[in-house]
Protein backbone atom coordinates (compact mmCIF):
# COMPACT_ATOMS: atom_id res chain seq x y z
CA UNK A 1 0.00 0.00 0.00
CA UNK A 2 1.35 3.38 -0.95
CA UNK A 3 -0.07 6.87 -0.71
CA UNK A 4 -1.31 6.97 -4.33
CA UNK A 5 -3.15 3.69 -3.95
CA UNK A 6 -4.68 4.75 -0.62
CA UNK A 7 -5.86 8.13 -1.89
CA UNK A 8 -7.11 6.40 -5.06
CA UNK A 9 -9.18 3.94 -3.04
CA UNK A 10 -10.50 6.70 -0.81
CA UNK A 11 -11.41 8.77 -3.85
CA UNK A 12 -13.33 5.78 -5.24
CA UNK A 13 -15.07 5.31 -1.91
CA UNK A 14 -15.88 9.02 -1.74
CA UNK A 15 -17.33 8.98 -5.30
CA UNK A 16 -19.68 6.12 -4.45
CA UNK A 17 -20.72 7.75 -1.18
CA UNK A 18 -21.51 11.15 -2.68
CA UNK A 19 -23.60 9.48 -5.36
CA UNK A 20 -25.57 7.50 -2.78
CA UNK A 21 -25.98 10.56 -0.55
CA UNK A 22 -27.07 12.74 -3.46
CA UNK A 23 -29.78 10.25 -4.41
CA UNK A 24 -30.84 9.75 -0.82
CA UNK A 25 -30.93 13.43 0.22
CA UNK A 26 -32.60 14.77 -2.91
CA UNK A 27 -34.85 11.68 -3.22
CA UNK A 28 -33.95 11.75 -6.88
CA UNK A 29 -31.55 10.09 -9.29
CA UNK A 30 -32.09 12.61 -12.08
CA UNK A 31 -29.00 13.02 -14.25
CA UNK A 32 -27.49 9.69 -13.21
CA UNK A 33 -27.06 6.93 -15.77
CA UNK A 34 -28.56 3.68 -14.49
CA UNK A 35 -26.75 1.89 -17.29
CA UNK A 36 -23.35 3.02 -16.01
CA UNK A 37 -24.37 1.97 -12.51
CA UNK A 38 -25.36 -1.51 -13.73
CA UNK A 39 -22.02 -1.80 -15.55
CA UNK A 40 -20.14 -0.84 -12.37
CA UNK A 41 -22.08 -3.43 -10.36
CA UNK A 42 -21.15 -6.01 -13.00
CA UNK A 43 -17.51 -4.88 -12.74
CA UNK A 44 -17.47 -5.46 -8.97
CA UNK A 45 -19.42 -8.72 -9.16
CA UNK A 46 -17.02 -10.24 -11.71
CA UNK A 47 -13.83 -8.88 -10.13
CA UNK A 48 -14.44 -9.66 -6.49
CA UNK A 49 -15.25 -13.36 -6.84
CA UNK A 50 -11.84 -13.86 -5.22
CA UNK A 51 -13.55 -12.94 -1.95
CA UNK A 52 -14.47 -16.63 -1.93
CA UNK A 53 -11.04 -17.95 -2.87
CA UNK A 54 -8.37 -15.69 -1.32
CA UNK A 55 -8.05 -13.65 1.81
CA UNK A 56 -5.73 -10.70 1.24
CA UNK A 57 -6.36 -8.37 4.16
CA UNK A 58 -9.22 -7.03 6.25
CA UNK A 59 -8.91 -3.72 4.38
CA UNK A 60 -9.19 -5.49 1.02
CA UNK A 61 -12.18 -7.59 2.07
CA UNK A 62 -14.08 -4.69 3.63
CA UNK A 63 -13.52 -2.40 0.66
CA UNK A 64 -14.70 -5.12 -1.75
CA UNK A 65 -17.83 -5.76 0.30
CA UNK A 66 -18.51 -2.02 0.49
CA UNK A 67 -18.14 -1.54 -3.28
CA UNK A 68 -20.41 -4.51 -3.96
CA UNK A 69 -23.13 -3.50 -1.51
CA UNK A 70 -23.07 0.16 -2.45
CA UNK A 71 -23.25 -0.49 -6.18
CA UNK A 72 -26.22 -2.83 -5.79
CA UNK A 73 -27.73 -0.34 -3.33
CA UNK A 74 -27.44 2.43 -5.92
CA UNK A 75 -29.20 0.23 -8.47
CA UNK A 76 -31.97 -0.49 -5.97
CA UNK A 77 -32.45 3.25 -5.32
CA UNK A 78 -32.51 4.03 -9.03
CA UNK A 79 -34.68 1.21 -10.32
CA UNK A 80 -36.96 0.59 -7.33
CA UNK A 81 -37.14 3.25 -4.64
CA UNK A 82 -36.74 6.43 -6.70
CA UNK A 83 -37.71 4.86 -10.01
CA UNK A 84 -40.01 7.78 -10.92
CA UNK A 85 -37.07 10.21 -10.92
CA UNK A 86 -34.87 8.09 -13.17
CA UNK A 87 -34.22 9.95 -16.39
CA UNK A 88 -34.52 6.96 -18.71
CA UNK A 89 -35.24 8.97 -21.85
CA UNK A 90 -31.74 10.41 -21.72
CA UNK A 91 -30.04 7.18 -20.64
CA UNK A 92 -29.93 5.51 -24.03
CA UNK A 93 -26.32 4.42 -24.54
CA UNK A 94 -26.29 0.93 -26.09
CA UNK A 95 -24.35 -1.10 -23.53
CA UNK A 96 -24.02 -4.11 -25.82
CA UNK A 97 -21.52 -2.02 -27.82
CA UNK A 98 -19.34 -2.14 -24.72
CA UNK A 99 -20.17 -5.56 -23.31
CA UNK A 100 -19.59 -7.59 -26.47
CA UNK A 101 -16.15 -6.17 -27.41
CA UNK A 102 -15.06 -6.29 -23.76
CA UNK A 103 -16.11 -9.96 -23.48
CA UNK A 104 -14.24 -10.84 -26.68
CA UNK A 105 -11.12 -8.91 -25.62
CA UNK A 106 -11.06 -10.59 -22.23
CA UNK A 107 -11.21 -14.02 -23.89
CA UNK A 108 -8.26 -13.14 -26.13
CA UNK A 109 -6.00 -10.94 -23.99
CA UNK A 110 -5.77 -12.36 -20.48
CA UNK A 111 -3.02 -13.57 -18.15
CA UNK A 112 -4.37 -17.11 -18.04
CA UNK A 113 -7.26 -18.95 -19.69
CA UNK A 114 -9.10 -19.69 -16.48
CA UNK A 115 -12.65 -18.75 -15.47
CA UNK A 116 -11.76 -16.45 -12.56
CA UNK A 117 -8.91 -14.87 -14.49
CA UNK A 118 -11.10 -14.19 -17.54
CA UNK A 119 -13.81 -12.68 -15.35
CA UNK A 120 -11.19 -10.50 -13.63
CA UNK A 121 -9.90 -9.37 -17.05
CA UNK A 122 -13.47 -8.74 -18.21
CA UNK A 123 -14.06 -6.55 -15.15
CA UNK A 124 -10.87 -4.55 -15.74
CA UNK A 125 -11.75 -3.90 -19.40
CA UNK A 126 -15.39 -3.17 -18.58
CA UNK A 127 -14.50 -0.74 -15.82
CA UNK A 128 -12.39 1.29 -18.23
CA UNK A 129 -15.45 2.08 -20.37
CA UNK A 130 -18.32 1.73 -17.88
CA UNK A 131 -18.61 5.50 -17.43
CA UNK A 132 -19.43 6.07 -21.13
CA UNK A 133 -23.25 5.85 -20.68
CA UNK A 134 -22.94 8.51 -17.94
CA UNK A 135 -20.73 10.80 -20.05
CA UNK A 136 -23.07 10.23 -22.99
CA UNK A 137 -26.02 11.24 -20.82
CA UNK A 138 -24.24 14.42 -19.64
CA UNK A 139 -23.43 15.33 -23.25
CA UNK A 140 -26.98 14.57 -24.35
CA UNK A 141 -28.70 16.68 -21.70
CA UNK A 142 -25.91 19.26 -22.05
CA UNK A 143 -25.44 19.74 -18.32
CA UNK A 144 -24.75 18.10 -14.99
CA UNK A 145 -25.53 19.15 -11.45
CA UNK A 146 -22.46 20.14 -9.41
CA UNK A 147 -22.83 17.08 -7.21
CA UNK A 148 -22.81 14.81 -10.28
CA UNK A 149 -19.66 16.63 -11.41
CA UNK A 150 -17.97 16.03 -8.05
CA UNK A 151 -18.94 12.37 -8.32
CA UNK A 152 -17.41 12.10 -11.80
CA UNK A 153 -14.27 13.92 -10.71
CA UNK A 154 -13.68 11.64 -7.72
CA UNK A 155 -14.38 8.57 -9.85
CA UNK A 156 -11.95 9.69 -12.56
CA UNK A 157 -9.27 10.73 -10.09
CA UNK A 158 -9.29 7.25 -8.57
CA UNK A 159 -7.94 5.49 -11.66
CA UNK A 160 -5.54 8.34 -12.36
CA UNK A 161 -4.10 7.84 -8.87
CA UNK A 162 -3.85 4.11 -9.54
CA UNK A 163 -1.59 4.90 -12.49
CA UNK A 164 0.75 6.78 -10.12
CA UNK A 165 0.50 3.75 -7.79
CA UNK A 166 1.55 1.44 -10.64
CA UNK A 167 4.51 3.64 -11.53
CA UNK A 168 5.53 3.64 -7.85
CA UNK A 169 5.09 -0.13 -7.55
CA UNK A 170 7.06 -0.74 -10.73
CA UNK A 171 10.08 1.10 -9.32
CA UNK A 172 9.80 -0.19 -5.74
CA UNK A 173 8.56 -3.78 -6.19
CA UNK A 174 9.02 -4.51 -9.88
CA UNK A 175 5.24 -5.01 -10.03
CA UNK A 176 3.75 -4.55 -13.47
CA UNK A 177 0.37 -5.69 -14.77
CA UNK A 178 0.03 -4.78 -18.43
CA UNK A 179 -3.74 -5.44 -18.59
CA UNK A 180 -4.52 -3.23 -15.59
CA UNK A 181 -2.15 -0.49 -16.74
CA UNK A 182 -3.48 -0.22 -20.31
CA UNK A 183 -7.12 -0.35 -19.15
CA UNK A 184 -6.35 2.17 -16.39
CA UNK A 185 -4.84 4.58 -18.92
CA UNK A 186 -7.86 4.21 -21.24
CA UNK A 187 -10.18 4.78 -18.28
CA UNK A 188 -8.35 7.93 -17.18
CA UNK A 189 -8.14 9.33 -20.72
CA UNK A 190 -11.94 9.05 -21.06
CA UNK A 191 -12.27 11.49 -18.17
CA UNK A 192 -9.77 14.04 -19.50
CA UNK A 193 -12.31 16.19 -21.32
CA UNK A 194 -14.49 16.12 -18.24
CA UNK A 195 -11.53 17.02 -15.94
CA UNK A 196 -10.84 20.06 -18.10
CA UNK A 197 -14.45 21.25 -17.83
CA UNK A 198 -14.52 20.49 -14.12
CA UNK A 199 -11.46 22.59 -13.38
CA UNK A 200 -12.36 25.47 -15.68
CA UNK A 201 -16.07 25.61 -14.79
CA UNK A 202 -17.32 23.66 -11.78
CA UNK A 203 -14.56 24.76 -9.42
CA UNK A 204 -15.33 28.37 -10.33
CA UNK A 205 -18.91 27.86 -9.25
CA UNK A 206 -20.45 27.56 -12.68
CA UNK A 207 -22.67 24.74 -13.82
CA UNK A 208 -21.24 22.17 -16.15
CA UNK A 209 -22.89 22.80 -19.50
Amino acid sequence: MNIFRLIGDLSHLFAILILLLKIWKTRSCAGISGRSQILFALVFATRYLDLFTHFISLYNTLMKIFYLCSSFGTIYLMYVKFKATYDRNHDTFRVEFLLIPVAILSLIFNHEFDVLEILWTFSIYLESVAILPQLFMVSKTGEAESITSHYLFALGAYRGLYILNWIYRYYTEGFFDLIAVIAGIVQTVLYCDFFYLYITKVLKGKRLT
Binding site: R5, D9, I56, S57, N60, M63, Y67, N165
Partner: peptide, 10 residues
Protein backbone atom coordinates in the same frame (compact mmCIF):
# COMPACT_ATOMS: atom_id res chain seq x y z
CA UNK B 1 2.29 -25.89 -9.47
CA UNK B 2 3.62 -22.38 -9.88
CA UNK B 3 2.64 -19.77 -7.34
CA UNK B 4 -0.59 -18.02 -8.23
CA UNK B 5 -0.40 -14.27 -8.43
CA UNK B 6 -2.62 -12.79 -5.75
CA UNK B 7 -4.35 -9.62 -6.83
CA UNK B 8 -4.21 -7.24 -3.92
CA UNK B 9 -5.63 -4.22 -5.75
CA UNK B 10 -9.25 -3.19 -5.86
Amino acid sequence: DEAEEVKDEL
